[in-house]
């Protein structure tokens, strides 16, 4: 497998993991809204909290994490951009 193919393999893997986490916070959580709401966080019903803040914060953290991971993958295979490219 060429360098480019290995790089793309890892990139695709990271994309899958990112979207799996995204799927959990965007969809799975809200499939169980009724039972989730019986729990609470900071005094808020849990499903309400996930809507109002929880999932949104998770998305922000997820994208920062993804960007950093992808930069590491690019560096590993020597595809980091040079200044002035």
């Amino acid at each position: 497998m060429s360098n480019k193919e290995k790089h793309w393999d890892k990139t695709r893997g990271l994309m899958m993991i990112t979207l799996a986490i995204w799927f959990i916070f965007g969809y799975v959580v809200f499939m169980f809204g009724t039972s989730l709401n019986e729990g609470s966080f900071l005094g808020y019903p849990l499903a309400y909290y996930m809507c109002a803040q929880g999932s949104i914060i998770a998305f922000v953290v997820l994208i920062f994490w993804f960007a950093n991971r992808q930069e590491k993958i690019d560096a590993e295979f020597g595809f980091t951009e040079k200044e002035g490219d």
Partner: peptide, 21 residues
């Protein structure tokens, strides 16, 4: 209430798709 808050999730989670895809 809660039902409307689907917009909050939808209008933020889309950025995960934007960045990864």
């Amino acid at each position: 209430g809660y039902t409307y808050m689907a917009f909050l999730i939808g209008w933020t989670g889309g950025y995960v798709l934007v960045s990864s895809l």
